[in-house]
């Protein structure tokens, strides 16, 4: 479970996040929806302790991210905006490296890597160096890496970026399986269809603030719009940057 209250973050005096509060429950997929520049990535980075908030607090499974960042990190798996693989290592080595950084024992690392490669159907390329991977292969590897230590909470920053239709479908299946396994899944997107298709709860961000939250159905109803798309446009006040 991920929770945040009053998160504020500025870069060079420009406020990127202006007091965001949110909750993402276990066994649910929570979507952060908003146009580019709404503060989605910054929020996620604060949640995964890469950035420290100027104000506000966040908890991962009740662990305070600022007071005990290492413990908080142990409880999350992060799929960053770019997959960020090491090109000279194979997918398996990329995964094992993170497993090792998480302090897993050798046998556990190997077992878990096999498990993930199997689960994510990476067998065909897992022994090859990451240099020539397709976007889908990269995302799978990065996801496996993020899940290697079996975190309760999974954060994904625009995971479908650059994926083809089939890859997006596969990813959705994976995320649902994570949810069904009881994980707390939090992902950001500016693609409305994705959010509406996948999310149990949607948090709509605009200009660094939460403008609405609820199930897709609740949002449509509360805005009085016929379609979800109209509801979002209304919520963020513009259709700019929304795909």
């Amino acid at each position: 479970m991920i929770a945040a209250e009053g998160l504020v973050k500025s870069f060079d005096g420009v406020k990127a996040v202006r007091g965001i509060a949110l909750r993402a429950e276990d066994g649910a997929i929570t979507g952060l929806l908003g146009p580019n520049g709404a503060g989605k990535s910054t929020t996620l980075r604060m949640l995964c302790t890469v950035l420290a908030p100027d104000a506000g607090e966040a908890w991962i499974d009740g662990t305070h991210t600022a007071r005990d960042p290492l413990e908080a990190r142990r409880r999350i798996g992060v799929l960053t905006h770019d997959s960020g693989l090491y090109p000279h290592l194979t997918a398996r080595e990329n995964i094992l490296y993170f497993a090792e950084l998480h302090g897993m024992a050798r046998a556990a690392r190997e077992r878990r890597a096999d498990e993930l490669i199997d689960w994510l159907e990476m067998g065909a390329f897992a022994g090859r160096r990451a240099k020539g991977y397709s976007q889908g292969q990269r995302i799978k590897t990065a996801l496996a890496r993020a899940l290697v230590h079996s975190p309760r909470n999974v954060l994904l920053d625009e995971p479908t970026n650059g994926l083809d239709v089939m890859a997006v479908r596969n990813l959705r299946v994976l995320l649902r399986r994570l949810r069904d396994a009881g994980h707390c899944v939090l992902f950001s997107s500016h693609v409305m269809q994705e959010v509406s298709a996948l999310c149990d709860v949607v948090v709509v961000l605009a200009r660094g603030s939460v403008v609405a939250r609820g199930t897709p159905e609740e949002l449509r109803i509360s805005t009085g719009c016929d379609s979800l798309e109209d509801a979002f446009v209304k919520l963020i006040g513009t259709d700019e940057g929304l795909g």
């Binding site: 960020g84 693989l85 950084l101």
Partner: peptide
């Protein structure tokens, strides 16, 4: 530059 730093920073290593 390869964006592998950010995932690295999410691991529980000082």
């Amino acid at each position: 530059e390869r964006h592998s730093l950010e995932p690295l920073l999410t691991t529980p290593v000082p």
